[in-house]
Nucleic acid binder design. Structure first.
Lengths: 252, 252
DNA sequence: GCATATTTGTCCGTATGTATC
DNA sequence: CGATACATACGGACAAATATG
């Protein structure tokens, strides 16, 4: 029947093998963030390739956010700590190619923030609660739109961190910034601030009381209220109703 | 007080400007997937840079999965349709650097699949239900581990597509493959198949009945049952309990 | 503060294997 | 099959930028 399944022989480029080796060194912890790579000339000797090939490999690694090289730096390229920049980049292009509608992004935010609140209500530490308090205070005291937005971001980041799940935290941050960038001009109306602050206080109270489901419901509702003017009719309704449905099912 | 806030002047590399221009052309739809870029020699004329610079730019674009170039291709580099490959790559490195624990990944799967089921129960089409039926049938008829796994993936992908949210679909796929790769050896025990099939049938019945909350609960429970042997005690409990808490709160 | 050496960024020319017509 | 054009890879070169003594 099926004989020995051979692997297709892909002709692997020289620069790719360099990328693989350096990438592996970083992922295995052999190269730690902050450490330096050898200079390009050293690398071309170690890999026995030309400098062009070394440079193409470095450009790929740089595009992935793993290293950074500056002209004239005698220490060689620097190994960077992981940042979700690459994740952010690929999600942004995914959204830009118009593969993603604003409704889908907001819906995803509702899912992520709901989960974050659910977890944060149970796992939060006192210092994280203090951070949320401080963020709300800064929202209240904010003068410019920028200041208000920054405090808002800090609040949500504190909640995401309190969830104890770095993936939720990173994805929430990425999706939020994408959504905000997409409709940055239209929103941030000062007349919405009071309502926004009130919402954050309610949600925080629910977190403090350990009522994750309530906090999640408030978050979904707030997102729906805020973004529905910019979305087609009923784009978010399903998630709201179904979340409510979860409760009804439990009551039965 | 605060004078005019100037932008820090970053010396932008030549290859970066090329990347920006081509990237913009793709994102704006000026260059569509399947179309070809000019040859490297044409590009070095159009941008008035050297060949090396053009190549470094192409390597970056290739790393982002936007183009593909083959030696000898007279048509030039091909513009690729968007694939979540870049997303997959960055999430994988995020997990590999051990920034992410297996518990966090599984937890994230619980969140995503729960949301997918919630939406799919309301938005599914008849053809998508048929796909899920077919996938379960193939799971039942599967002989090898590989076949079973492929059918399993197809089922979950059908659910994710039925959610109508491409971001949920893509992220679910990415996180699932990462988790599976992390513990590929240990699992897939044949004795678990019957139970797995039974679970899928239950979840599909819930979807067909339009009971999203039930389907979501089943999915979370199945993930917890399946992965808890490989996780520290109580790593997933919070999410299960809190999801149950959503119901209790609704009953009150 | 300054001069120097090193490194990166960029350019040019060339050779080689390959895909298409 | 042959001719052509292409990508891959090599090596040498110069200017700008940077760190070091």
């Amino acid at each position: 029947m099926s004989g020995p399944r051979f692997q297709p022989v892909r002709t692997v480029r020289a620069y790719e093998r360099i990328v693989e080796q350096i990438e592996h060194a970083v992922e295995s912890g052999e190269l730690r963030p902050g450490e330096r790579l050898p200079s390009e000339r050293d690398l071309m000797v170690q890999f026995s390739v030309s400098r062009s090939t070394v440079r193409e490999a470095l450009r790929v690694l740089q595009a992935r956010g793993m290293v950074r090289s500056r002209p004239g730096d005698p220490h060689g390229a620097e190994v960077l700590p992981f940042t979700p920049a690459a994740l952010h980049k690929s999600m942004t292009t995914l959204a830009r190619v118009d593969e993603l509608s604003l409704a889908e992004l907001v819906q995803f935010r509702m899912v992520l923030e709901g989960a974050a609140y659910l977890l944060a209500a149970r796992l939060h530490t006192p210092s994280q609660l203090a951070e949320m308090d401080a963020a709300i205070a800064r929202m209240r005291a904010a003068e410019g739109e920028e200041e208000f937005g920054a405090a808002d971001v800090d609040f949500h980041d504190a909640v995401a961190r309190a969830s104890g799940n770095k993936l939720i935290q990173i994805c929430s941050d990425v999706v939020r910034s994408i959504v905000v960038n997409l409709i940055a001009d239209k929103i941030r109306a000062p007349e919405l601030r009071a309502r926004s602050i009130a919402h954050h206080e309610e949600a925080l109270a629910a977190v403090r009381a350990g009522d994750g489901p309530l906090a999640a419901r408030l978050a979904r509702q707030a997102l729906s209220d805020f973004y529905s003017p910019y979305l087609p009719e009923g784009a978010l309704g399903v998630l709201l109703e179904e979340a409510a449905g979860e409760e009804a099912a439990g009551g039965a």
